[in-house]
Simulated scan of single mutants.
Amino acid sequence: MTTDALVDTSAMLGQLVAECASERVLLISDQSSLTSQVLAHGGQSLTGADSEAERLPDARLELAIVDGEANLPADSATTLVSRLRDVHAERVVVIAAADEGTILSRQALIGLGFHRRGISADHGSRRRRWYEFDMAHYKVTPDWLNARHWANPELWDKYRW
């Protein structure tokens, strides 16, 4: 895949926020180009340094987006993403750097239950990987988890087990 075929990071973010169609969107980023995309749709924005747990909104968000290149504290970046995933948002998207030496690496995000969403490119043709956690699509219901494989209360008086 060439870098010409990659979607611009700002354009991909704008599309994500537009498809969400909600004002309950939070972006944690230090880049003003990304911040303006979210603010244009009525969302909220925090910088990486201001992303402490007590500054996160109290209301449940529909979408939280974390820029992996924001100035996040190294010791609490995964804690912040986990807290957003578990407490504050229905969907969490992390825009991570392509190189593995970063705080929010591929291995760390996959370990937190994120799935790869896509790849984008910044202005300098630098690749960014997108990871998403959506609670509605997190776990597929297995085939064995249905009434056919379990005791049916409707049949309790009809048969003796």
Rank of each mutant, 00 (worst) to 15 (best):
M1R: 07
M1C: 09
T3I: 13
T3H: 09
D4F: 00
A5G: 02
A5H: 05
A5Y: 08
L6N: 02
V7H: 01
A11W: 10
A11C: 08
A11V: 13
M12E: 10
L13H: 03
G14A: 08
G14W: 05
Q15F: 08
Q15T: 10
V17Y: 01
A18C: 01
E19K: 09
A21N: 08
E23S: 06
R24N: 12
L26I: 13
L27Q: 06
I28T: 04
Q31D: 11
Q31K: 05
Q31H: 07
S32E: 14
S32N: 10
S32W: 14
S33C: 01
S36W: 04
S36K: 12
Q37G: 01
Q37I: 10
L39M: 04
A40M: 12
H41T: 03
G42Y: 00
G43P: 03
Q44L: 11
Q44M: 09
L46F: 11
L46P: 06
T47H: 08
T47F: 12
G48K: 06
G48T: 13
G48N: 09
S51P: 02
S51D: 03
E52P: 00
A53G: 05
E54Q: 10
E54Y: 10
R55L: 13
L56A: 10
L56Q: 12
P57H: 05
R60G: 00
R60Q: 03
R60E: 03
R60V: 02
L61N: 02
L61G: 02
E62M: 10
L63Q: 05
A64N: 05
A64M: 09
I65V: 15
V66H: 11
G68C: 11
E69M: 10
N71A: 09
L72V: 08
A77I: 06
R83N: 15
L84R: 06
A89K: 02
A89P: 01
E90A: 09
V93N: 00
V94Y: 01
I95P: 03
A97W: 03
A97K: 05
D99C: 01
L104A: 10
L104D: 11
S105D: 00
S105G: 00
S105K: 01
R106E: 13
A108M: 01
L109H: 01
I110C: 06
G111Y: 06
L112C: 05
G113I: 00
G113T: 00
F114N: 02
H115T: 14
R117N: 14
G118F: 07
A121Q: 06
D122V: 05
D122K: 02
H123C: 12
H123L: 14
R128N: 15
R128Q: 15
R129L: 15
R129F: 15
R129D: 14
R129N: 14
Y131Q: 01
M135R: 11
H137M: 13
H137N: 12
H137K: 12
K139L: 15
K139V: 14
V140T: 12
P142T: 07
W144I: 11
W144C: 04
L145E: 11
R148N: 15
H149N: 15
H149A: 15
A151P: 10
A151D: 07
N152I: 02
E154D: 11
E154H: 07
K158S: 13
Y159P: 00
Y159Q: 05
Y159R: 07
W161V: 06
